[in-house]
Design a protein around this nucleic acid. Structure first.
Lengths: 232, 232
DNA sequence: TCAAAAGTGTTCAAGATACACCCATGA
DNA sequence: TCATGGGTGTATCTTGAACACTTTTGA
C-alpha cells in the first residue's frame, strides 16, 4: 500500500448524509416540503428529505439524486447551505450531514407533493417539530432565502416561467412576512430591467387580468458578469 | 444489532477533512496563512491548513483543533464556509472536506507565522497555486470576507483590540481593493456607535498620532438583537 | 353598475458621495 | 520650519419611503 493511503487510513471515516430544505410557494404562502421518516430511529416523525451519500457521487449529485428520488423533479435550484457535524446529532450513530437549500417552482409544486414517499407541503407559518437538528437547518435556510431574495433574483425560481407582478409581489411578501407598496415594488423590479413583459394577461385572479412577465436569463447573466447586484 | 444500525451500515463511509482559509492583515495587506504540505500526495506543495476529523469531535471542534495545532492560537473567529465533495478532488482517495474561514487578529499575527509547521503568510495579491481545490476555497472565502465586512463589523476580528481609524480604513481598503474617502468612512463607522474612543494615541505611524478605539462588544450585541445590521 | 384587483407618479426625507483645508508633531 | 499623516464639515445627488386615484371587466 502506498504511504499516502496508509496515512489516510489511520483516520476514521463517517457516514455522510445530505438533507434538503425544499421551499415552495403556493396560495400566497411560503411552504416547506417534508415527510414522515421511514426508518429508525424516529420513524414516523417529521423530517426533511435526506439520504446517505454514496461512493460514486459528489455531495451535489447526492443532493440532486435524493431530491429527484423523492419528488421526481430534476434541474431544481439547489445550493449547499451548511454542514452539521455535532458528535451526537444523530442518536443512532455518527452522521455528518450536509444541508442543501432547494427552491421548487410553483408549476411543479403539486406534482412534488404527490410523490409516493408521502411528501407533504407545510406552511412555514405552522411548521411542526422536526427530527434531530432539522428545525435548526430550516431556520438557517430561511435566513438564506431572505438574503438571497434581497440580493439576487432568486425569487423567480419559486414562480412558474410566466408570472404576474402581483404574484411576484406576493412571493416577496411571503418571504419577508411584511406588506410591500405596489408602486415602489414595481418600480424597483422594473428598474432592474431583467423582466420581459408579455402581451398576454393572466385572468385567473382578477377580471381585469394582470400582464405576464418572463425573467430574462441572458440579460441577467450579462449584468452579473458586469458586476451588478440586485437589491429589493 | 438494532435495525437502525443495520440500515446505516448498508451505506459507505468517508474520510472527512477540514481545511481552513486563515486571513490576517499586516503591512496594509490582506494575507493568507498557508504551508507546505507534509505528507503525500502533493507533499511540499502549498496548501491550506487542514486535517482529518476524528471520532470524538464535531466539525467545528476539528477546525479549532487543527488551527490551534498549527498556530498555537485559540478563540479565533471561525465559521464554516462550504463543503467540497467532488468524487475525485483528492487524488489519493475519497475525502470530503469542510472548509472553514478564520480571521486572526493582527496582534497575534507574527506568532502564528512562526509556528513549527512552516506556516507562511502570503499576500492575497500574489497568491501561489495551491493543491487540489484549495484556490477555489480561497476565492469563496474572499467573497465571504467582503460580504461579511460590509454587513457585520467583522473587520475588527483582524485588528488588535485597540486600533486607530487609519488602520481600520486601511483594512477595509485592503479587503475591497479600493480607496475610501477618509471623512465618509469615519462618518459611517462612528454612526454605528459601536466604537469607544480612548484618550491614548498611537504614534507608531505618524508624529501627530492617531486616537485609539476599542470595539464595544456589549453595544454591538444589543444592536444585533434589536435587528440592526451594518453596512460599510 | 359595481365590486375587485391591476395599474400608474410625485413629493419628501434620508443616506451616500464628493470635495479641501487646518492641526499636531518630530525631525 | 516643514514634511507627514490625522482630523474635520458642507453641499449635492441619489435612493428609498410614503401616499390615492383611475382602469378594466365579469358577474
Amino acid at each position: 500500500m502506498p504511504p499516502e493511503k496508509q496515512y489516510y487510513q489511520a483516520h476514521p471515516t463517517f457516514h455522510v448524509a445530505v438533507d434538503s430544505i425544499i421551499f415552495g410557494f403556493d396560495q400566497g404562502e411560503l411552504k416547506l416540503l417534508i415527510h414522515k421518516r421511514q426508518f429508525e430511529p424516529a420513524r414516523g416523525e417529521w423530517s426533511l428529505f435526506g439520504g446517505f451519500v454514496q461512493q460514486d457521487e459528489s455531495l451535489d449529485e447526492a443532493a440532486s439524486r435524493i431530491l429527484s428520488e423523492h419528488t421526481g423533479l430534476r434541474d431544481i435550484y439547489m445550493e449547499e447551505l451548511h454542514s452539521y457535524g455535532e458528535v451526537d446529532r444523530d442518536p443512532a450513530g455518527r452522521v455528518i450531514s450536509v444541508a442543501y437549500f432547494a427552491l421548487i417552482p410553483a408549476g411543479e409544486f403539486t406534482e412534488a407533493g404527490k410523490s409516493k414517499s408521502g411528501a407533504t407541503w407545510v406552511s412555514m407559518e405552522e411548521l411542526p417539530s422536526l427530527i434531530m437538528d432539522h428545525n435548526q437547518m430550516v431556520e438557517k435556510a430561511l435566513r438564506r432565502l431572505k438574503r438571497r431574495a434581497a440580493t439576487q433574483p432568486i425569487g423567480f425560481e419559486l414562480l412558474p416561467g410566466e408570472f404576474t407582478m402581483p404574484q411576484l409581489q406576493a412571493l416577496y411578501e411571503a418571504i419577508y412576512q411584511s406588506k410591500l407598496d405596489k408602486r415602489n415594488f414595481r418600480k424597483k423590479i422594473l428598474a432592474m430591467e431583467v423582466l420581459i413583459k408579455l402581451d398576454t394577461k393572466d385572468k385567473s385572479s382578477s377580471k381585469k387580468g394582470a400582464y405576464l412577465y418572463r425573467f430574462d436569463q441572458k440579460k441577467y447573466k450579462k449584468l452579473v458578469e458586469g458586476g451588478y447586484n440586485f437589491t429589493i
